[in-house]
């Protein structure tokens, strides 16, 4: 039972981590809290539903199209809503992000209706037997995929040219532009990577919880935001650690049969971190530039 609960925590935490990575990357590069990020998950889940339940196509195609749709959606949102405001005050762009979030939620409600849609199973495999222990297949898969995705992301950011450009833009956008880095392409790339991770998260979410509804991204996005802040917003390892922390906190509280207090505990955790260590666990102390 202890091991199963650990897996439950890892699985929940992994989903938060995948979403938190998108938050943290976008914040790292243009200092924007992209509140529409949680709703991208919702879009991904609906695409899976459309492809499998409505069109009756193969689950593999559903996974590819969901991730592709999320990636495209992320880039599109940046181009349409955020790019024109690149030099506007940060508050304007923050409020735009909230607007985009409402637009997506209500748009989905208009198109698909307010009722939950059931995403069909991607695979017939439900459980994995491991030495007399029945493990949930979606849980195991979620944890594995998250590990792979995080490693891949770290390699992209640390080893590739685009990754180097991302780090440079995040250090100093003006100086990066002077060095010949195409800032707009780099920002689009960041949105694409963050949203692709959200797309992967959407598939894993739909696999574990089997339902899609217009407001599913709201609480998920908020929790992931808490995770990103806990870990230190802008930090990639921070987002993963923050996500796992939130996941484990929820599972521990629920396992103690106090599930009603689950959200309160997560937000209390956020308050404590903000009071004790405002930059988060892995956050750097920012020095004001003169």
């Amino acid at each position: 039972m202890f091991f199963t609960q650990v897996l439950n925590g890892l699985q929940l935490g992994s989903i938060y981590a995948l979403v938190a990575l998108g938050y943290t990357m976008v914040y790292g590069i243009i200092l924007l809290l992209n509140f529409a990020h949680g709703d991208i998950i919702m879009v991904g889940a609906y695409v899976s539903w459309l492809v499998m339940a409505q069109l009756g196509l193969h689950p593999v195609l559903a996974i590819i199209l969901s991730v592709a749709a999320c990636t495209l959606m992320g880039v599109l949102i940046d181009k349409v809503a955020y790019a024109p405001l690149r030099n506007a005050p940060r508050l304007s762009i923050l409020i735009t992000a909230i607007g985009v979030s409402y637009f997506l939620e209500n748009g989905a409600q208009l198109v698909f209706g307010a009722d939950a849609k059931v995403v069909p199973a991607y695979t017939d495999i439900q459980t994995i037997q491991l030495g007399g222990l029945a493990l949930s297949f979606p849980s195991v898969l979620t944890v594995l995929v998250t590990i792979v995705a995080t490693v891949a992301l770290t390699i992209v950011v640390q080893k590739t040219k685009l990754g180097k450009a991302m780090r440079a833009v995040s250090e100093d956008m003006g100086a990066a532009r002077l060095m010949g880095i195409n800032v707009n392409t780099t920002i689009s790339f960041t949105f694409a990577v963050g949203s692709a991770l959200a797309g992967i998260g959407a598939v894993l979410y739909a696999m574990a919880y089997t339902q899609a509804n217009p407001t599913m991204g709201m609480m998920l996005g908020t929790k992931a935001f808490v995770a990103a802040v806990l870990g230190g917003i802008g930090s990639i390892p921070g987002a993963v650690v923050g996500g796992l922390l939130v996941g484990f906190a929820e599972v521990i509280v629920t396992a103690l049969n106090l599930s009603v207090w689950k959200d309160a505990v997560v937000f209390l955790l956020l308050i404590i971190v903000l009071v004790v260590r405002p930059t988060g666990i892995f956050g750097r102390t920012m020095n004001e530039k003169v």
Binding site: M1, N8, L12, Y209, Q211, E250, V251, A255, S259, D263
Partner: peptide
């Protein structure tokens, strides 16, 4: 075991 309105993850309760 109990859960709260809006919950989608019941695995911790089910494990118990």
């Amino acid at each position: 075991q109990s859960y709260a309105e809006g919950d989608v993850d019941f695995k911790a309760q089910l494990t118990n």
